Simulated assay, not measured.
Amino acid sequence: MRISVFVAASALFLSLFTACSKDKDQTPVPAQTPSEILASTAWETTSAKNAQGAQVALTDDNVKNFVGFAYFKASTKFTMYNLDNSPKMKGDWWLSPDGKTRFIIARNDAGTELFRREVEITVLARTEFTYRIYPNAANKAVYFDIVHTPTTHVEPGI
């Protein structure tokens, strides 16, 4: 009887001790806002899909202008580069309050607005950023999802 009480007490102690100790990998990550997630890493376009979910080559005319590296700064400035590191655009960015829409204003070196773009975000997580483009804004049945994943690629010129 004493042995079983000792074994039970030891098991209880070990379970409490184990439950109180935390491995670094198990430490919860603080919650981030959608803007903080977008600004937390550099992003690389890694794939594109059509409305049927089929893969689309990144060289396809419907998606090639959206391919590259993107750097969204916490200061709400952004820079984008083509995959060969040539400059693509820079300017200002922000997200809608619900984090479901990204807005950019592309600017030239003098700061003059070149164009504005608004895209629907379909995924925004620490491991993926995907937005949807419509070749014809009047036809929501035809679209392409542009998928980005985090990259360690250093921003050119930095």
Rank of each mutant, 00 (worst) to 15 (best):
S86M: 11
P87D: 04
P87V: 09
P87L: 08
P87T: 08
K88N: 14
K88D: 09
K88H: 10
M89Q: 12
M89V: 01
G91K: 05
G91L: 02
G91Q: 13
D92V: 15
D92F: 09
D92L: 14
D92P: 03
D92W: 08
W93R: 12
W93N: 09
W93A: 07
W93L: 10
W94I: 15
W94T: 15
L95S: 10
L95H: 06
S96G: 07
S96F: 04
P97L: 07
P97W: 01
D98Y: 11
D98P: 01
D98F: 11
G99I: 00
G99W: 01
K100R: 11
K100F: 00
T101F: 07
R102V: 10
I104E: 01
I104H: 03
I104F: 06
I104D: 00
I105M: 09
I105N: 10
A106G: 10
A106E: 07
R107V: 02
R107K: 14
R107S: 01
N108P: 03
D109H: 04
D109R: 02
D109A: 11
A110R: 13
G111V: 05
G111I: 01
G111A: 13
T112C: 00
T112N: 11
T112F: 05
E113G: 03
E113N: 11
E113C: 04
E113T: 11
E113V: 12
E113I: 12
L114H: 07
L114W: 07
L114R: 10
R116H: 14
R116W: 10
R116V: 00
R117D: 13
R117W: 06
R117V: 00
V119N: 15
E120M: 09
E120P: 08
I121S: 10
T122E: 11
T122Q: 11
T122P: 08
T122R: 09
V123Y: 09
V123I: 15
V123F: 14
L124H: 07
A125Y: 01
A125L: 05
R126P: 00
R126T: 02
T127Q: 05
T127M: 03
E128R: 09
E128A: 07
Y131R: 06
R132L: 03
I133N: 08
I133R: 07
Y134F: 15
Y134M: 05
P135W: 06
P135V: 15
N136I: 13
N136P: 01
N136L: 09
N136R: 14
A137F: 11
A137M: 13
A138C: 03
A138E: 15
K140W: 03
K140C: 02
A141Y: 04
A141Q: 14
A141C: 08
V142S: 06
V142L: 12
Y143D: 04
Y143L: 13
Y143S: 15
Y143I: 02
Y143H: 14
F144H: 13
F144W: 14
D145G: 06
D145Q: 04
D145M: 14
D145V: 15
I146E: 03
V147D: 02
V147W: 03
T149A: 02
T149E: 12
P150A: 11
P150K: 01
T151R: 06
